[in-house]
Design a protein around this nucleic acid. Structure first.
Length: 736
RNA sequence: GCCGCCUUAGCUCAGCCGGUAGAGCGGCGCUUUCGUAAAGCGCAGGUCCAGGGUUCGAGUCCCUGAGGCGGCUCCA
């Protein structure tokens, strides 16, 4: 017998071989009709599946259950794939999972699919849904499954089976629906007729198995619901969310702009945006001073040697603006050094090298693109020799070296003596040298150096996004230098600082991610023992604070693990804001020390932290968070005075002066327009308060207050309005 | 960087099968002196992203490049 525990606590015994649907029928006919799938021991299964022997929890899923929506969407992905196969014969299927608000299917079709094709595909899907054919599960031994996929000419599926044969030696499942058969774990709807409403949303490129070196496929995104009403509600919600987009609001509200001439990913803060940023900066600066931080300033560039020492230059070469050598040819040799140190020339870098070589008139005449890696490196070597010769630089160590690695090292020796600078990609090396500028005692620790430090990173063009992913940004950065037994308290205090900032701004929808190193990757520097210690400390601190978190391998910085605060933008993309990073490595690389109570030198430990992340990204997220309607303490313009007619201009100016004298950001609108028009403008500019001034106010010495969100609040004496607003600003009230 | 799409007035956008460019808002001028989300009339404003090609003729078709959007990959 099979024993099932139902959600209401009752227990049901059924015979072996009973299907989930049969159980639903014994519970109730209506329930069986409403059933979409079943949940056994937390796992969602088809209604047609026979229940496994033993004791289980059992639940029938109906349309109301969120898990049921996933099942529906997964089935809809199959329907879409089936429609695509009909319309685009020869299409290869990859993966078709559900995602948070819908589903996608990765495909490789002989003729690329375009958004114009969506209506045809949707019409074909509609036909399939109308037939209401069942989804039938069947299983095959792995070898046979491979054969079936091969017969279906689904080469990607065959490749996938080869990859996962190890993990599934005892067979794989398929689902058949009409002529369509797909390798799939399931579960699925009983039949396609249950798909109430669906829509294809977009199309994008995606790499096979998420690997950029593999083939790029087309990813078709769609969504589906049980009812048209739900679909319409979702589409409406999408439209509304788009109106909060910081790129749109930034333009409308004149907060920031990006100019092609200045460069992609470089934010120009317009006066209104600059006000908000300034208020945020003083907010955090005051907080830091209270917490024992010391503000510092450092320049925007630093010597290459500095970043060779820190590791930033060699490790993130491709993500930086090119180095600036005072001797131009050194730049070319630097490029050679880098390629030689990598020991390979991939297609992209080979093209770059050829272009570079051409401009220097050093193209090897017999250069063949099809050369092997070894031949390519040989050309690179000959090019380097030619450069050195022309520059009349004699490098015996280079000549003596026999392989690319040796040559790279010899070149680096020479480059290290060349004067070269880098736009700073991080502030830490500069701050480290402030730490190093004086001898430190254990009594001085922790030393907390803070700066709104602007850094530059050459992000790939496809990554740039409004204010959230840029090439020049300012971190509210600080570096803390401390002893081992101060680490925990400092970490804790920094996490609390981030939380304080988030609370003040009403950012409540975030998640905490602990970034650990990926054991399989070689990008991390330092002693594994230090890493283990650092990772354990971070996890302990977060646990002790009772926070929810997810620990994710591969999300660490190259020098240490970190705690990130991740938020979502208006269309659901995640961005890292606040970050706290623990670092045992840079102190070693820069040979930092302090004198301990034992009168001997010790190595300090560093924390890197930026509660906002970057002011640019934070501002972008904040614009979306408030939908452009900043609370009074942050608003670029706090008060707009609107006069009923030009007769009241004088009184208006008097009130304006009074408010300005109290430090408020106020602007008077004295144009001979109707006040309805002036109010509309102020409302659209999202000014928190409008003060209407006419005959009554002038004679009574009052102002008629109108709130952006609550409308007419009635007249009050000017002094009273001043007191109210001052309090609202002081308390950093969020309003709504 | 990769795949797909987009780029027309300051902004939002129309512009058919290739025949020489339009609207609304905004701006400016005049009139209106007005009570809580748009007063009326008039005027100005365009290298149709850039470069090349096809064509008698290109905003429209083709190629290359730049910038943007959505993904993917990346993100110290």
């Amino acid at each position: 017998m099979i024993t099932l525990k139902l959600p209401d606590g009752s227990v049901k015994e059924v015979a072996p071989g009973t299907t989930a649907r049969q159980v639903a029928e014994t519970i109730g006919k209506r329930l069986a009709q409403a059933a979409v799938a079943a949940k056994v021991d937390g796992e969602v299964i088809d209604l047609a599946r026979e229940l496994p022997p033993g004791e289980h929890t059992f639940q029938v899923l109906t349309e109301k259950d969120p898990d049921a929506l996933d099942v529906l969407r997964h089935s809809c992905a199959h329907v879409m794939a089936r429609a695509v196969l009909r319309l685009f014969p020869g299409t290869q299927l990859a993966f078709g999972p559900t995602i948070e608000n819908g589903f996608y299917y990765d495909i490789d079709s002989p003729t690329p699919i375009r958004e114009d094709d969506f209506p045809r595909i949707e019409a074909e899907m509609q036909k399939i849904v109308a037939l209401a054919e069942p989804f039938e599960r069947f299983e095959r031994p792995t070898a046979e499954a491979r054969g079936l996929c091969a017969d279906l000419r689904q080469t990607l599926k065959v490749e996938h089976i080869d990859d996962l044969a190890r993990d599934h030696p005892d067979g794989l499942s398929f689902y058949r629906q009409g002529e369509f058969i797909d390798l799939c774990r399931g579960p699925h709807l009983p039949h396609a007729g249950r798909i109430g409403a669906f829509k294809l949303l977009s199309i994008a490129g995606a790499y096979w198995k998420n690997d950029a070196s593999r083939k790029q496929l087309q990813r078709l995104y769609g969504t589906a619901f049980f009812s048209h009403k739900d679909l319409d509600a979702y589409l409406h919600q999408l439209e509304e969310a788009k109106k909060r987009d910081h790129r749109l609001l930034g333009k409308q509200l004149k907060l920031f702009t990006i100019s092609t001439m200045v460069g992609s990913g470089l934010i120009l803060w317009m006066p209104k945006g600059a006000i908000v940023r300034g208020v945020l900066e003083s907010f955090i600066k005051d907080e830091l001073l209270k917490r024992g931080y010391q503000p510092v300033y450092t320049p925007h560039i630093g010597r290459l040697e500095l970043y060779r020492t820190s590791g930033h230059f060699p490790y993130y070469r491709d993500a930086q603006f090119p180095p600036m050598y005072t001797r131009p040819a050194a730049g070319a040799l630097d490029l050679c050094q880098y390629r030689l140190s990598l020991g390979e020339l991939d297609d992209k870098r080979e093209t770059e090298f050829l272009q570079y070589a051409k401009t220097a008139y050093f193209v090897p005449p017999d250069y063949e693109r099809a050369a092997t890696q070894a031949e390519k490196l040989e050309y690179l070597h000959r090019y380097t020799l030619k450069m050195l010769e022309t520059m009349q630089v004699d490098l015996p160590a280079y000549r003596a070296a026999t392989d690319a690695k040796g040559r790279a090292e010899a070149l680096l020796q020479w480059l290290a003596d060349q004067e070269g600078f880098l736009l700073k990609p991080m502030n830490c090396p500069h701050h480290i040298h402030i730490y190093k500028a004086e001898p430190r005692s254990y009594r001085d620790l922790p030393v907390r150096l803070a700066e709104f430090g602007t850094v530059y990173r050459y992000e790939q063009t496809g990554e740039l996004n409004g204010m959230t992913r840029v090439r020049g940004f300012t971190q509210d950065d600080a570096h803390l230098f401390m002893t081992a037994d101060q680490v925990e308290a400092e970490l804790k205090s920094n996490i609390e600082l981030v939380l304080f900032i988030f609370t003040t701004l009403g950012l409540s929808d975030y998640r905490v991610r602990i970034g650990l190193r990926d054991p399989a990757s070689s990008k991390y520097v330092g002693d594994p023992a230090d890493w283990d210690r650092a990772e354990k400390t971070l996890i302990d601190v977060v646990k002790n604070l009772g926070m929810n978190y997810s620990a994710e391998a591969g999300e660490a910085a190259f020098y240490g693990p970190k705690i990130d605060f991740v938020v979502r933008d208006c269309i659901g993309r995640e961005w890292q804001l606040g970050t706290v990073q623990l670092d045992y490595n840079l102190p070693k690389r820069f040979d930092l020390e302090y004198i301990g109570p034992d009168n001997a030198p010790h190595r300090p430990i560093m924390i890197h932290r930026a509660p906002f992340g970057s002011l640019e990204r934070f501002m972008g997220i904040l614009i979306e968070h408030f939908a452009g309607a900043f609370p009074a303490w942050l608003a670029p313009e706090q008060v707009r005075l609107v006069t009923v007619s030009e007769k009241f201009t004088a009184y208006g100016r008097q009130v304006e002066g009074e408010l300005r004298a109290h430090g408020f950001r106020v602007q008077g609108d004295y144009r001979p327009e109707k006040i309805g028009f002036k109010i509309r403008e102020a409302q659209l500019e999202k000014v928190p308060y409008m003060l209407v001034i006419g005959e009554k106010e002038q004679s009574a010495g009052t102002v008629a207050v109108r709130s952006r969100s609550e409308g007419d609040l009635g007249a009050v004496p000017v002094a009273e309005f001043v007191a109210r607003l001052a309090r609202e600003v002081r308390e950093r009230r969020l309003g709504r």
